[in-house]
């Protein structure tokens, strides 16, 4: 027993040391990837704006009555100026402030969706690939169903059903108010965002399974759970990180579409929601439509650039 425990700890140490150097190599390669760095910089900027949103935005977020100050000052529907860098909406909101406040929701959607989707992806991909047999058959049939589902359309239906159930608008968790309806959308989008990626992971695991070090671990008496957690998972981690970055990009896009079509959270002002509100008046106040749209674009671009950079840095076949 003792010797087995020692061996386990020893192997873990070895693993860590090797993977550390692998990550160091990847970071060195990533640093040379200009567009990847640009993406990383944009993501960092986005996170900073989200953290300091209440300091950066000149006006508070709705439903605070002060959010309508431009209206009281007779400045509704104003084009971009020094006072209102992105102009004001027809109902008198400062577009710049609302875009800044919106970064919080955008990051929430990106991270929340990705966490849930990646959890499903990794669990399904690894257990399907490694365990094989009946479990593989069952999981792959379920995956096929999710691949065939016209997901965006069903997301709309589910989002609408939750809108009508009309839960309380916010949950208060440790002093942070979390929008309930937006959380539902995050869950719905995540449920439809894993199938294709789970297949990719399964393929990777199938290839890994035949490698010598897995056979060695097996012959040393390691059980399946140990091998999946300690040997398979660290080796697919690079792939998982790339997929996760790209999932963040698509989650932001899908949430923007859902909100733009009017299926979003009625109690939060996301960028898609802003575009929905201004769509009817965009011939007069085009700025209220274009700036939130550009915010979506730059956010998705940032995640995509970063994902490309990471993918190139971690791809062993591109190594010089």
């Amino acid at each position: 027993m003792v010797s087995l425990a020692l061996r386990k700890r020893g192997s873990r140490k070895g693993q860590e040391r090797r993977s550390a150097s692998q990550w160091a190599v990847a970071w060195r390669r990533f640093k040379k990837h200009k567009s990847g760095l640009l993406g990383l910089g944009m993501v960092v900027a986005l996170i900073l704006v989200a953290i300091f949103h209440s300091f950066i935005a000149p006006y508070p977020a709705r439903p605070d009555p002060n959010a309508f100050l431009p209206l009281y000052e007779g400045e509704a529907g104003q084009p971009p100026s020094w006072k209102h860098p992105f102009g004001t909406t027809i109902i008198g909101n400062d577009v710049f402030s609302e875009v800044v406040h919106g970064t919080v929701y955008t990051l929430y959607v990106a991270i929340g969706t990705t966490l849930i989707a990646m959890l499903i992806t990794v669990v399904v991909g690894i257990s399907s690939g490694y365990l094989g047999g009946k479990i593989d058959d069952l999981l792959m049939r379920i995956t096929e169903v999710f691949l065939v589902f016209p997901s965006l359309l069903l997301i709309l239906v589910f989002a609408r059903i939750y809108q009508l159930i009309n839960p309380e608008p916010f949950w208060n968790v440790l002093g942070i108010s979390i929008p309930v309806n937006l959380t539902m959308i995050v869950v719905i989008v995540a449920v439809f965002a894993w199938a294709g990626n789970a297949r990719v992971i399964r393929g990777e695991v199938l290839a890994l399974k035949e490698k010598e070090f897995i056979q060695a671990a097996k012959s040393l008496g390691a059980n399946s759970r140990w091998i999946m957690l300690r040997h398979i998972f660290p080796n697919i981690l690079p792939q998982v990180i790339v997929i996760a970055t790209l999932t963040m990009a698509s989650a932001v896009l899908v949430e923007a579409v859902v909100s733009f079509l009017g299926f979003g959270d009625p109690s939060t002002i996301t960028w898609g929601r802003m575009m929905e509100e201004s769509f009817q008046n965009m011939s007069t106040t085009w700025w209220a439509e274009v700036f939130p749209g550009l915010a979506v674009f730059f956010t998705v671009l940032a995640f995509n650039l970063m994902g490309d950079g990471i993918s190139d840095a971690l791809n062993p076949r591109l190594r010089e």
Binding site: M282, S283, F297, V300
Partner: peptide
């Protein structure tokens, strides 16, 4: 093409309407 992949399609439509129609 990476910009194109990141550009929300409906937003591209909005830009087109703003420019070519309005």
């Amino acid at each position: 093409s990476i910009a194109g992949v990141s550009f929300p399609v409906f937003f591209l439509g909005i830009i087109f309407i703003l420019v070519f129609s309005y």
